[in-house]
Structure formats: structure tokens, C-alpha cells
Design a binder for these strands. Structure first.
Lengths: 262, 262
DNA sequence: CGTAAGTTTGACAGCGGTCAATCCTCGTGG
DNA sequence: CCACGAGGATTGACCGCTGTCAAACTTACG
């Protein structure tokens, strides 16, 4: 239906092995608590950063459902009424903002344990959309529950504030990257960030599979897909990486880090 | 003392008509409530956006002091322990982040009514620094006071959450700008944003004085100061602006807006 | 096997960075 | 009061990075 453009934020059409018939992804809302929702990831990564055991237990009590999103499906879309936050349980998401004239940009990639939807709190409307980059699962956290002063509300409010603040810091450092780095530095920064996030989740920090296309990486890094591809090739030539399509192996992590300091 | 670099985040050395002898800007902490702290600006601008009357009164009760900062003086610096938020009462500030290798970037300019320091909530350390671009005044809001569940804490917590969320949205749209606009579009976007913020504060939206240098604008927009200057000249040539150093008059606001949609 | 999407690579051009000279403003000191 | 110097702004010349256009290759799915 939607007139598909050449944008990096579109939904995928080729549904992979998605079973189809799932046009409305808001289907099942099983009552499953955060603690059962891939607890290891959620607790030991971004979400847990700075949260006390008490915070986590409070959060657990406020989480009431989970939801699945297949590859290419939106979890929510920009402009939609804000109602809940989502904690990635498994899989990967990208979030995208759109300019008035249609230009779009990927503002982030989200791994298990990270929180989505915080940009909706301010206005009551999601400012960005989130789309699954593979078949994924999230925990749904109704925001109204957080506002209830009841049930350790204050603790959780503080935790949410910390998470938001970190998102601000992250966005600012991305601004720095977009404003002052060349193509090679941007890609190196992206890969190193990805590497440390994989490591934090118990995966290999030097070998991983990217779930996003060259175009999506380019959109995130503020460069064209051809430049992304060329820069990958350049880093391979310099013996810092092995790359085969979306499979990446970091050969020389030391040098990749020093590629940032130019 | 500090080895001054060529960065856009440095403190100014030429103290203008500053009286001197004010090396420690944390001096006087008069007990003045937010309501007395340029209330018109604070209430009718960013801070007030989305806040109820109740929120504002709650905030008032938590504000205990104000502080002055002369041109070039830091309000706080990156890495410093986080303790309070600052509401700009009068004047202008810039905030800056620094990369490991010393590169810096201006992440925002702040007008009366806007809140500074939210990036410190997450880690307990300010991730950016804030420097006065003219002699300015702020309201000091100890963050600990906000966390106290006492005295309508929940209301204020929600208000702070909304403000943080808006800052996230703002940062994301800046990322979009840095990633996908050319020099002219960036400058136009900057001027239009500045214009509407001036208008919101009761100033002329078409004629104003910029408190920041070309280098600082460039740092914020991800371009070099020469390019900023050239782009100003280009917009003058196109009859969209009148520019004399830092004094700007928007001649054709319509066309300036359409310069964004390319 | 054919088509579509994604990736890679090449050729070329243009925007913006770099280096440099000049001008302007303002504060300081002779 | 004027000369001088420093910092900021403007403008020009040049060039390199990255965008643009295009073609070839790979992979997956119908």
C-alpha cells in the first residue's frame, strides 16, 4: 500500500521466512514478566546500567506483556501515539526519524537489553519509528505504570531518568561523530561500538553478523552506501578487518581503535 | 593556566567588561526561587513546554539559588561530578562535548528558559561542559531535591522525564541535519530554529544578534568557520538575509524555509 | 532459471576543507 | 589621540573526500 521510497527506513518487502498473515504485529500480549523476558540480556546490558537490584525488581513488577516483530515489521511508527516503552528481548531493531521533505535517517541500532520509545515521553507521540532487522521479541512496558507513584514508582522514575540521560549522551557523541569524523573514522567507531556491545552480551567482540544493510549503516553514519562499501574494502586492504557481506571479523582491534585518533 | 587550544569550546580570554576577580564563579548562592528567576522566560519557553501549572509550582519549590556566569566562564565542565541542573534565567550558553583525541563539538546553544545539565543524570558526571556566551544568570536546581519523593516529587519527576525526552528528540533531529543536509540547509535550519526560539521569548523573529562566533556555529553545524562565513554571504547574495558580523536580519523567511526542502 | 535486492567497484565531478591574505573591530599602550 | 596588535570575519585559490552515476557480480526467492 504505502508508496515505498528509496529510504533506509522502509519496511522490508521480502518477508524472509516470516509466516505471513501477521500484518498487525500487535497481536498476542502474553502476560510475561521482564524477568522471564530474556532476563540475562536485559539485566546485564544497557538497561541494567546504573540500575540497582531494587530498580530491576521494580521494573519487573511493571512489565506485563511481550510482543514479537518479524523482519521488517515496525514496532511503532513516527507520529503514532505514545503509550509504552519496549525493552528488546531478542533480535535487533533500528530506529528512524523523518524530515518534512521525506529525507530519513537511522538514529540507532538496538540490541537485546536496550530500551526503545523514550522519545515519545516528551510529546506523547513517538518522534521516531522502530523496525525489526530480524525476527525479534520485546517486552512491553506501559508508561502509565511507571507514572503511578504506587509500587516503588519513585525508584523506577529515577532509573528511567538515568536511561534517558544516557540516551542524550549517546546522541551527543553521535553528533560529534557526524560533525567531525571522516568516513573511515565513522565506520571504525561504529564497528568498535558494535563490538563492545556484542561483548557485553556475551558474544564474540571480534566476529559478528551485521543485521543491517550498507544503506542503513550509511544512513546512520551520515554517508552513502557506496562510501560504506568502499570504506569496508579499504579497512580490509589495511588488514584491520575481514568482511564477507554482512559477516565481519575484526583482525586488528588495536589498530582499528587507533584509526579513531587519526 | 589551561593550555588553550584552537577549539570552539574554549573559554574566552578577553573578558570584555567583566569586572575581573571572579575566577570562582560558584560564588553567591542567594536563595531565590525559580518564580523570581526571570519567570516569564522560564515559564513560557522550553522548560514550560508540556509542563502543567502544577509541575511549575512543584519546580518552584525545589529551586534554591541562582548563579551568575560572565562571558567565557564555564557553568560546569565535562567530567565534573553531577549535582544540579541549571535553568537559564538570562543570557546564552553553549554546551560542548570532547572526544578522546581532543576534538570538540558544540552540541547546543541555550537560551533563557532552557535546562542545562541533563546529561549528567545517567552517570553522575557531566558528559559535556557549558560555557556562557555573554554575562548570564541561571537558576540552580539541586537534583537530589528532585529525587526526594517528598513535596510533589512524582509530578516533577514526570516533568523532568518529558524534558529529557525532548532533548533526545532534539538531538536526533540534529543528527538528521548533520547526516543529510548540505551547508546551506544546515545554516538555514540553524537560523530558522534560532528565529522561532527568539520569537517564543518575545523577541523579533527576523532580526537578532548572535552571541556565538562563526567557529562555534560551524562546530555546532559540523562545518568549518570559513564555510559558515561563505554560506552567510551566499544567503545574503540571494536576498534571504542581511548580515553584519553577528547581527542577522531575515529578509525572506518564506524562502529561507523553502531552502530546507531543497 | 529469471528477477529483484544487495554489494562491490570504477569514473568523474562538486562541495566543502585547507591554506592564506585581507579587512574590520576593539582594547591597549605609547 | 593615534598607533599597534589580537581576534574575528571575509574572500580567494586549490584540492581531496565523498556523492553521483553506472555497470558487474552475488545471493535469495519465486
Amino acid at each position: 500500500m504505502t508508496a515505498e521510497t528509496e529510504a533506509p527506513c522502509g519496511q522490508h518487502r521480502r518477508g524472509s521466512r516470516s509466516v505471513e498473515g501477521h500484518d498487525v504485529p500487535s497481536a498476542e500480549h502474553a502476560r510475561i514478566r521482564l524477568a522471564q523476558c530474556s532476563p540475562l540480556h536485559v539485566r546485564e546490558s544497557c538497561l541494567a546500567g546504573g540500575l540497582s537490584q531494587q530498580d530491576l525488581e521494580a521494573l519487573d513488577r511493571l512489565t506485563f506483556s511481550r510482543r514479537r516483530a518479524h523482519l521488517g515489521e515496525p514496532l511503532y511508527e513516527a507520529g503514532q501515539a505514545f503509550g509504552q516503552l519496549y525493552a528488546v528481548g531478542s533480535g535487533t531493531f533500528k530506529s528512524c526519524v523523518t524530515l518534512a521533505d521525506g529525507r530519513q535517517q537511522v538514529t540507532g541500532f538496538h540490541l537485546p537489553g536496550e530500551l526503545l520509545g523514550l522519545d515519545g515521553v516528551g510529546t506523547g507521540t513517538y518522534a521516531s519509528g522502530a523496525i525489526a532487522l530480524e525476527d525479534s521479541e520485546v517486552c512491553v512496558i506501559p508508561y502509565a505504570n511507571l507514572r503511578d507513584a504506587s509500587s516503588a514508582g519513585a525508584e523506577v522514575q529515577g532509573a528511567i531518568a538515568r536511561l534517558m540521560s544516557r540516551e542524550i549522551v549517546r546522541a551527543h557523541s553521535l553528533m560529534l561523530m557526524l560533525g567531525s569524523m571522516n568516513a573511515e573514522e565513522r565506520l571504525a567507531a561504529f564497528l568498535l561500538s558494535f563490538s563492545s556491545r556484542m561483548k557485553a552480551r556475551g558474544f564474540s567482540p571480534t566476529e559478528f553478523h551485521l543485521r543491517m544493510s550498507r544503506e542503513e549503516i550509511g544512513s546512520f553514519l551520515g554517508m552513502k552506501l557506496e562510501t560504506v562499501s568502499r570504506t569496508f574494502s579499504s579497512l580490509v586492504q589495511k588488514r584491520l578487518l575481514d568482511v564477507n557481506k554482512r559477516h565481519v571479523r575484526i583482525v586488528d582491534l588495536q589498530q582499528l581503535q587507533s584509526a579513531l585518533a587519526r
